[in-house]
Simulated assay, not measured.
Amino acid sequence: MMRTLFDAELNKLNVDLTKMGHLVEVSIENMIDAFKHQDKTLAKEIMDNDRLINDMERAIESRSFNLILRQQPIASDLRNVTSALKIVTDLERIGDQAADIAEIILNFEGEHAYRTVEHIPTMAKKAKMMVHEAIDAFIKKDLSTAQMVIKMDDEIDSLFQEVKQEVTEILKENSERIDYCIDFLMIAKYLERVGDHAVNICEWLEFNQTGTMNDHRLI
């Protein structure tokens, strides 16, 4: 009976994780649209949505701790709950990055910023793909997709270097645009962090399934 209750609670935990992952994906998609169209109304919605993501993180953390305290989980159960706790932290931070970019979008005036730095749109699309695939891999327990996402992180890092070079060239042409360029660098840095958190989700999936992370056995 206790095992049945535990399994039911664990299933609810996974359902909540899936819902939170969906909210985060929506935030990333909306962030790209808001940036592309300089849609300040949508940017504000992203910032409001971030509060819902934060609330879900706290609810999942509470459910996870209750599972550990009320039961005596075996190793595989402990891996499930521990990885859930870690993944919700990364999901929450991805939501934060989307909200941070939305806040920058609210400050853009006049120029169409989306195409000013060529590699930022590419970074945004790559980050969106990484988040989607990482969440999908976790839901399906798909280690091969997780490995693919981890390898994609090098592409995001390379694009960040390209953005820095582009911003340097803009400043060479007009040093008075320093504030504008700082905004672009911040957006690129946030996108790079989104990629890092997607990688973390995949690494916690590896731990969930194998008890190892980065070739080190944890449980």
Rank of each mutant, 00 (worst) to 15 (best):
residue 166 E to T: 08
residue 175 S to M: 06
residue 191 L to K: 01
residue 187 I to Y: 03
residue 183 D to W: 02
residue 172 K to G: 10
residue 171 L to W: 04
residue 177 R to K: 15
residue 190 Y to I: 00
residue 176 E to A: 12
residue 190 Y to M: 05
residue 193 R to F: 08
residue 183 D to R: 14
residue 179 D to I: 09
residue 165 Q to G: 12
residue 183 D to F: 03
residue 171 L to G: 07
residue 189 K to C: 04
residue 166 E to C: 03
residue 159 L to C: 04
residue 170 I to Q: 09
residue 164 K to M: 12
residue 191 L to N: 03
residue 194 V to G: 05
residue 182 I to C: 10
residue 167 V to G: 05
residue 161 Q to Y: 06
residue 194 V to K: 05
residue 186 M to N: 11
residue 160 F to N: 14
residue 160 F to W: 08
residue 163 V to N: 03
residue 171 L to H: 06
residue 186 M to G: 00
residue 163 V to K: 00
residue 169 E to I: 09
residue 161 Q to A: 09
residue 157 D to Q: 07
residue 194 V to C: 06
residue 193 R to W: 08
residue 167 V to P: 01
residue 178 I to M: 14
residue 174 N to T: 08
residue 186 M to Q: 11
residue 174 N to R: 13
residue 169 E to A: 14
residue 161 Q to S: 11
residue 183 D to Q: 14
residue 169 E to L: 13
residue 157 D to T: 05
residue 171 L to F: 05
residue 172 K to F: 10
residue 185 L to F: 04
residue 164 K to H: 12
residue 174 N to P: 09
residue 165 Q to D: 13
residue 185 L to Q: 10
residue 170 I to P: 00
residue 195 G to M: 04
residue 166 E to W: 01
residue 179 D to Y: 07
residue 193 R to H: 11
residue 190 Y to D: 09
residue 178 I to W: 05
residue 157 D to R: 07
residue 175 S to R: 11
residue 180 Y to I: 06
residue 187 I to S: 01
residue 175 S to E: 10
residue 174 N to I: 04
residue 159 L to I: 08
residue 182 I to T: 13
residue 178 I to S: 11
residue 175 S to Q: 10
residue 165 Q to I: 08
residue 192 E to Y: 03
residue 192 E to I: 03
residue 173 E to G: 15
residue 187 I to V: 15
residue 186 M to A: 11
residue 189 K to E: 07
residue 171 L to C: 07
residue 180 Y to N: 08
residue 160 F to S: 04
residue 162 E to I: 04
residue 166 E to I: 01
residue 191 L to D: 03
residue 180 Y to Q: 15
residue 181 C to D: 04
residue 169 E to K: 15
residue 161 Q to P: 00
residue 165 Q to F: 08
residue 194 V to T: 12
residue 180 Y to K: 15
residue 191 L to E: 03
residue 190 Y to Q: 07
residue 195 G to Q: 04
residue 176 E to Y: 05
residue 157 D to H: 07
residue 164 K to R: 14
residue 181 C to Y: 07
residue 177 R to H: 08
residue 182 I to G: 05
residue 175 S to C: 02
residue 186 M to W: 12
residue 181 C to I: 07
residue 173 E to W: 00
residue 188 A to R: 03
residue 176 E to Q: 12
residue 176 E to G: 07
residue 192 E to D: 09
residue 187 I to G: 01
residue 158 S to V: 02
residue 164 K to Q: 13
residue 183 D to C: 11
residue 160 F to D: 10
residue 187 I to P: 05
residue 174 N to D: 15
residue 157 D to C: 06
residue 169 E to D: 13
residue 178 I to V: 15
residue 188 A to K: 04
residue 188 A to I: 08
residue 177 R to F: 01
residue 165 Q to W: 03
residue 190 Y to C: 09
residue 177 R to M: 11
residue 187 I to E: 01
residue 158 S to Q: 12
residue 162 E to C: 09
residue 187 I to M: 15
residue 158 S to F: 06
residue 192 E to N: 06
residue 179 D to R: 12
residue 193 R to M: 08
residue 169 E to M: 11
residue 190 Y to L: 01
residue 177 R to Q: 13
residue 161 Q to C: 06
residue 173 E to F: 01
residue 184 F to D: 02
residue 162 E to Y: 09
residue 158 S to H: 12
residue 195 G to I: 03
residue 173 E to A: 14
residue 186 M to V: 11
residue 182 I to V: 15
residue 190 Y to W: 02
residue 172 K to M: 12
residue 193 R to P: 10
